[in-house]
Design a binder for these strands. Structure first.
Lengths: 211, 211
DNA sequence: ATCCTTGTTGATCGCACGATCAACAATGCT
DNA sequence: AGCATTGTTGATCGTGCGATCAACAAGGAT
């Protein structure tokens, strides 16, 4: 019947303990949001005293923004990696739209939305948010510029269009967070919208079949 | 040197006091967000004891969601009112896009974004968020259906496209909240994207000149 | 076997929150 | 003038937060 007596945490190297805390913070954020990142919460998950978590972090704002950056950067790199496998710009753009709207990353979307709000009161986090947004925008911009080069697209300001597409994807994902029901073929509609923006031929950015 | 002695608040009718509290909550939310809506905060603004605010509200969740609904519904009705002055669907759609992206309502956008997150832990608020989103979607849907009727647009699923446009607008506004710099002619890009979605002729949805 | 470094504890401080409620006082009625 | 109604106060409770730090103990070095 010993619930969880756990006398004392085993002594570990600073690097190992820091990694544990980082990982615990990541899990908590994905499950319950950045707001759930408290000293006591993280400590409980790691199985140590709250003071130890504080010992490994300058302050909680830093832990929050680092956790945000860790989660979001991983997603960016994962999706960017998938892009390189595609033959051309139209296919890459289609994959981007498709992948980002497939609802398999709603937990990450929730963190984005939360970070937009928390950033108003956590300057460290705000800086991190801008940095990660820039990274995403660069991914889109690269695809648009590719399309310009091959003649598939016709865009005068690739950076602006990239920002625009990113904003649309974010908005649709945030919407799915609150209203998961409703529209099904979001990818198809967005693909058509994006075709209009990049000056691609209608139907050239094809949403992957739902299978 | 009497800072603010204010012995005791003047006695007012319940209706009047309730209105004061509602208004104070509205102002606080617009200035500092829904999270800043605390008993003590609202009470201080009205100039009464914290207990009185609690007396007029069943609980804080209710005050938060009512305040959200008040602010957001006012915006919806204001913009919807402007629509009726426009001659045709293309102009209405252009006005919608233009008005919503003119950055004059970023404080309301901030409240939307915050509500998306807070709704995860405040079911009353979540219901209110869905309700207000539906109202916005209906506005867009009406415009799209108008365009279908006049032949200006060609949309098979007006409801879905309306959701889509709403999501895009929300996303671009949220982006402006974090990155106010960057893209200028968001209206033009979005207009082009929307033309693609509604099947309108390129250039038929014209963004108002920035003057 | 002893000591010293250092990872770890947990109590503690100050603060802010929502909620509650007995006591108070202003107002209007009789 | 006296009284009942009711808007209002402010102290209080319990909770949770970030942060701090003296005390403790595990492990390696000697």
């Amino acid at each position: 019947m010993s619930s969880t007596p756990q006398k004392r945490a085993v002594r570990k190297s600073p690097a190992e303990r820091a990694a544990e805390i980082t990982e615990a913070a990541r899990e908590i954020a994905l499950e319950a949001g950045l707001t759930a990142l408290t000293l006591r919460n993280v400590a409980a998950r790691v199985g140590v005293a709250s003071g130890l978590v504080a010992h490994y972090q300058p302050n909680m704002d830093a832990l929050v923004s680092n956790t945000f950056a860790t989660i979001v950067a991983a997603e960016t790199q994962e999706v960017a990696g998938l892009l390189s496998l595609q033959p051309g710009p139209s296919e890459r753009l289609a994959l981007l739209v498709d992948t980002l709207l497939d609802n398999s990353r709603l937990d990450v979307t929730a963190i984005w939305v939360e970070a937009w709000t928390l950033g108003r009161r956590n300057e460290t986090l705000a800086a991190s948010v801008r940095e990660q947004m820039d990274a995403w925008q660069k991914v889109f911009q690269g695809v648009v510029e590719d399309g310009n080069a091959t003649g598939a697209f016709n865009v005068s300001d690739a950076a602006a269009v990239a920002w625009q597409i990113l904003g649309m994807v974010d908005g649709l994902n945030a919407q799915a967070l609150v209203r998961w029901d409703g529209v099904n073929d979001r990818g198809t509609h967005l693909a058509r919208a994006v075709e209009g923006m990049v000056g691609a031929a209608p139907g050239s950015v094809v949403a992957k079949p739902s299978g």
